[in-house]
Design a protein around this nucleic acid. Sequence first.
DNA 1: CGCCAGGCAACAC
DNA 2: GTGTTGCATGGC
Length: 239
Amino acid sequence: MVKLVAALERLLVSYGPRGWWPLPSLAGTPGRDANGYALGPSLPVGPGGGAIDRSLRFEIAVGAVLAQNTAWSGAERAVAAVAEAGALSPSPMLALPAGELEDLIKPAGTFRIKAGYLRGLASAWTELDEGVPTRGELLALPGIGFETADCVLLYAYGEPTFVADAYARRLLSRLGHAIDGRSYEGARRYAEDLLPLEAPYLAEAHALIVEHCKLRCRARPLCDGCPLATDCDVHAKAN
DNA sequence: CGCCAGGCAACAC
DNA sequence: GTGTTGCATGGC
């Protein structure tokens, strides 16, 4: 079995910091880097790296919904289109005619459903965002499930949360951790018992896990050259 | 062409 | 509570 902290360390060395969460509406604007993070005196300020203001929190929540079961490239274009239309805040979003929001977010797929989710999010957001929302409050919104709620808590509010998505569960399982059959919440608590409960760490961990699982630890794993291959069970069996 | 992508809700059992 | 299905565009 590969220890989770050791695996994450190797992923960080191999891939470098991923810099999630990207903020497409701000990327490339003055004072922002390619991910939309504010350029500070030393380190970039952004999700996991500093205070996140009100408008960015909403953008992150919108992005999290639009990214569901969709390549990030599509979600990113959809967020940018909403921003371009001036609708990347609750009131303007709610003021859009019914079909227009759908048209704006088409690149993200499942656009009729997601438009309804975004309306529900926009309706509840201002009150919800007065403080740090609880997981239960987020889960009560339409279209916000376990993974989306945790992404919002982690990347928008800096709450230390492990995003136990399908990638993370696949990786943990392949590294020899006995999480088969565990629910999302079971896997989340399992991982949180193994890791430092600090938002920047968990934010980078999630991003690295997604990167690694897209590049190598796919449904059909590409173990050749994998940074975790030396003592990963899957690699041992496949070779 | 088929398969998958930062999932979720509704429904079946 | 676990399993299955619809949703829909875009990249490879």
